[in-house]
């Protein structure tokens, strides 16, 4: 499903060039739930944005479903992302002027009647029914992240990339998010989560550790 080979991503800094990703290679098979664990600044978000086609690597390649992401034109990559990848961000990134239902629908490229029904089901499943017409500014952090999760799930993408999806949540809400991601994975979806804690580990089929831009080791959930 996802393959990255010798990914390098450097940034210019005052002190010189900093490698956020340093020769990172791994594969994620369809139907896996992979958690990438690492401390703040280890390059997790950079890795996720690179896998999501939003940050071109300095060198190396990313393939999703056999397509080399960065050999596509910008437009084709955008269309591919719209059809293939769902994102969940730590800071939710909800559109502030759209209510809960509209925010979730915003994740669906062509919202037909089926998609609207699916969105309504997600709203109920994630306990957002009473807040469906509310603006993000009136929601709690847990509710916002559930909206962001619903938005990623609504278009039924083959792959969900989640960047610290529970970073701003209490354990109860964090559990809701991971359980829903695990349900999605069991239904055949592929999940790749980056997180600084190990709270994703109980739900992941595999866990990797990222340390200073390098994949340090392959860990099993049992080790964690």
């Amino acid at each position: 499903m996802v393959s990255c080979d010798h990914l390098v991503r450097t940034f210019a800094a005052r002190a010189g060039t900093v490698a956020a990703l340093d020769d990172v290679s791994f594969r994620v098979e369809r139907g896996e739930f992979v958690a990438i664990h690492g401390a703040s600044g280890s390059g997790k978000s950079t890795l996720l944005l690179t896998l999501g086609g939003m940050l071109r690597p300095t060198s190396g390649a990313v393939s999703i479903d056999g397509r080399d992401l960065y050999s596509l034109s910008a437009g084709a990559r955008t269309r591919f992302r719209a059809s293939t990848i769902g994102f969940v961000f730590q800071l939710f990134h909800l559109v502030p002027y759209l209510d809960v239902r509209q925010n979730i629908l915003a994740g669906v490229p062509r919202p037909d009647a089926d998609a609207r029904a699916r969105v309504d089901r997600l709203i109920e499943e994630l306990g957002l029914g009473p807040r469906a017409e509310s603006l993000p500014s009136t929601l709690s952090a847990g509710e916002r992240q559930r909206v962001a999760l619903a938005r990623a799930l609504a278009k039924q993408p083959p792959l969900i990339l989640a960047d610290e999806p529970t970073g701003n949540l209490d354990p109860v809400n964090a559990g809701v998010v991971f359980r829903r991601l695990a349900d999605y994975q069991r239904a055949g979806g592929t999940v790749l989560v980056v997180t600084h804690g190990n709270d994703a580990a109980p739900y992941a089929t595999r866990t990797l550790r990222l340390d200073h831009g390098r994949l340090a080791a392959r860990l099993t959930t049992e080790v964690l």
Binding site: S40, G41, K44, S45, T46, F89, Q90, E164, G167, H196
Partner: peptide, 9 residues
């Protein structure tokens, strides 16, 4: 560049 505003770390 969306990466500027979407990255968490």
């Amino acid at each position: 560049d969306p990466a500027e505003t979407l990255r968490a770390d």
